[in-house]
């Protein structure tokens, strides 16, 4: 009897009943402790170890919290990106959507809406302004999903278009100038502390918890994996593929808005060119975290690890005084390496 169960050939070994206990156990063990899931953690650990030896500034509380605060924005965006990539899609518009939502929140908070013809002025509370920002993000995400499912536009193209549109809208809304001076209460979101932990970190914890719950515990989460794994089988199983995709893009849009509000609050200013190339950092986090760009395989926590690796790497390269030009080269090579390792793992599976 063959010791390892192979696809198809398994029929023979299992022909007279259940396969031997040894086979079953070893497989179950492999499933429970895949090395692949830990390799990014190991990489992160080694990275931190190296940095704490090379720089005495790395392993300090102020630096680490600073890193976490910076990473929070990428984590929020990347969680949404992960959901999309799991369905075998992609979202290039997150950076622009982030900028637009941040700008809208800032603008409403600072200036409100004035309608001179009606002699009307609408002021916004903090809650109102952030809510409108979040709704805007969701709506743009939903629009992405609608264009992709209704007209079969490839996600790459639909969200590329949205990247340009949302950036244009940001410029229109801000007139090309930053909106600054938004008040201390608003700054609390990006710079405050709560229970000895920075507020942005709390926000990203909540976002991650929500997404983990969604992917692991709910029907829609299962559908996301199923659609990415085999869209046609999912459709035949009665899953409303379009509906699930629209929901996923909407969530990603909302999370981009959350990121936008965090960025705006931290800088106390909405920059019209905020979030440029954030989509690339976010895709990098997703990929380094082991999520397959062809869909169906990956996890939220993997992406969190990916985002932390990128953040720590950025921070470390700055601390080590590496020139910004070299930083980009290193980051790019790390992404490539991560994908190569991931491919090798997938082959071994």
């Amino acid at each position: 009897m063959p010791q390892n169960i192979q696809p198809i050939a398994g029929e023979k070994s299992a022909a007279d009943g259940r396969p031997s206990g040894a086979d079953g156990r070893s497989l179950a063990l492999q499933n429970r402790f895949p090395i692949a899931r830990f390799q990014s953690l190991i990489a992160l650990f080694l990275l931190c170890l190296a940095l704490s030896i090379l720089s005495d500034k790395f392993l300090t509380f102020s630096n680490l919290w600073n890193v976490m605060r910076q990473i929070s924005v990428n984590i929020c965006i990347s969680v949404g990106m992960t959901l999309i990539v799991l369905t075998a899609g992609i979202d290039l518009s997150v950076g622009s959507v982030l900028a637009l939502c941040g700008a809208i929140t800032a603008g409403l908070l600072k200036n409100g809406i004035e309608i001179p013809s009606l002699n009307l002025f609408i002021g916004f509370t903090l809650l109102g302004a952030t809510l409108v920002g979040a709704v805007t993000g969701s709506a743009l995400g939903a629009f992405n999903g609608w264009a992709i499912t209704r007209f079969s536009v490839p996600p790459f193209v639909a969200t590329l278009a949205m990247l340009t549109v949302a950036r244009g809208l940001t410029m229109l809304w801000t007139g090309g100038f930053p909106i600054s001076g938004l008040g201390e209460t608003f700054q609390f979101i990006g710079t405050g502390w709560f229970l000895a932990i920075p507020v942005p970190v709390w926000i990203s914890i909540v976002v991650v918890a929500f997404a983990v719950f969604l992917t692991e515990k709910t029907r829609i989460g299962r559908y996301i994996y199923a659609i990415g794994g085999n869209e046609s089988a999912s459709r035949l199983s009665g899953i409303h593929v379009s509906r699930v995709k629209i929901i996923v893009y909407t969530i990603a849009g909302a999370l981009a808005a959350v990121g936008g509000i965090m960025v705006t609050s931290r800088l106390d200013s909405a920059q019209p060119n905020a979030g440029i190339s954030y989509e690339l950092d976010s895709i990098a986090a997703v990929v380094i975290g082991g999520t397959s760009l062809s869909g169906g395989r990956g996890s939220i926590l993997g992406t969190v690890q990916g985002a932390i690796i990128i953040g720590v790497l950025n921070n470390g390269l700055v601390l080590l005084n590496v020139s910004p030009f070299w930083q980009q080269v290193v980051k790019g090579l790390v992404i490539l390496l991560a994908v190569i390792i991931d491919k090798a793992n997938a082959k071994n599976e």
């Binding site: 299962r222 085999n230 899953i239």
Partner: peptide, 21 residues
Amino acid sequence: KKDGLVLGLDVKNNISLTTLE
């Protein structure tokens, strides 16, 4: 393989796919 199963999901999740509600 093309239309029946989600090969990357496990046996349990494939069986329950039609009746998740």
